[in-house]
Simulated scan of single mutants.
Amino acid sequence: GHTRAFDQMVSWLAVHTAKSAVSQLMRISWRTVGALVARVWADTGAAVDRLEGLRRIGIDEISYKKGHRYLTVVVDHDTGWLVWASPGKSAATLNAFFDLLGDERAAKITHVSADGADWITTVIRRRCPNAVRCADAFHVVAWATDAVDRVRRQAWNEATGRGAGRRGVAVGTARQLKNTRWALWKNPENLTDAQQAKLAWIAKTHPRLHRAWALKEGLRLVFTLAKTSPTAAVEALDRWIGWARRSRIDIFIDLQRRVTRHRDQIIAAITHGLSNGRIESVNAKIRLITRMAFGFHSSEALIAMAMLSLGGHRPELPRP
């Protein structure tokens, strides 16, 4: 019941403003806005081959709705455009992308960046045999940040008497430990004076926890060095693996095994200077689209909005 020009007008407005505002301005329902956007993207997507010429891609997943609802997204590193998205977070979901891409074009992919998820690695090895697999630096450092937080929780449990075979200490000490999360998480150059004091207190009273923080910073330093000297970064990575192995902190011993398992992918990321930075930027914009729309009734509407906004083919205003 709508003209093509009306569809284009609604889609243009939806890309540039909140979905609820479009609904009120154009006197149509919330569901109708999503349906029109999906229809316009179906026409636009059918008119262009957005997968042509792909050489370096990034793969990631993003939570878009409560209840563990995920989208798997693929971004072109060279253009920064979102080229594909689909509901789900599994090997079957990613295989659907490569089915659409085709074996001939998949063989031309030279680099793939992603986190360390095994399901992504399995699909890439089978469908992109010529591609260099690069582990995303942000996710690798996030592994270490999570490990520090687990060591912090262990220390807090011991301080409160919840650790196996340990007696609780003063309540004030436990409270101080509980409030150290940001001092341990943040980069040293971003710490406030109070957080720096908290870190100094940890160094004096909890050397094991401070050693865990130092290990986290040591892994972050690897990727800082990669920006200026890839060779030095690789050497620092190998030294870090040895340091973590001898740390006598079980959580970091397990982490170094994980890092060792992904060592080739991490070195590839350091050597080729590839990360999921572009993909994280696209994910942030998808979250913004979701907030502007105050939620979507279907993943199809969200994907259509994301593709029109971030896929390099924005709708144009209809000519009078």
Score class of each variant (00 low, 15 high):
T110E: 15
R258E: 07
W12D: 10
A197E: 13
I266M: 09
L225R: 10
P230K: 12
P315W: 05
L274A: 15
F6V: 08
L317E: 08
M305D: 01
W119S: 12
D103E: 10
K186Q: 12
R314C: 09
A137V: 06
H2S: 14
G312R: 00
H206W: 02
E316C: 14
G161H: 09
V48F: 11
T110M: 13
R55Q: 05
A174Q: 14
W213L: 10
Q24R: 11
K204Y: 02
G88K: 11
A107F: 07
L237N: 09
D264Y: 07
I28Y: 06
I279L: 05
H262W: 13
R126C: 04
I62W: 01
L177I: 13
L94A: 05
A301H: 00
G45Y: 15
A301E: 00
A155C: 11
V33E: 03
R162G: 15
H272T: 14
Q24C: 08
A14N: 11
E104F: 07
K178T: 06
I28V: 12
R39S: 06
A174S: 07
A233I: 04
K227T: 15
R314I: 06
S23N: 05
L54M: 07
A91P: 01
I124Q: 00
E217K: 15
W30G: 01
L177A: 11
F294I: 00
N276Q: 08
I303Q: 00
A117V: 05
D7M: 12
E104H: 11
L274G: 09
G67P: 14
V222W: 00
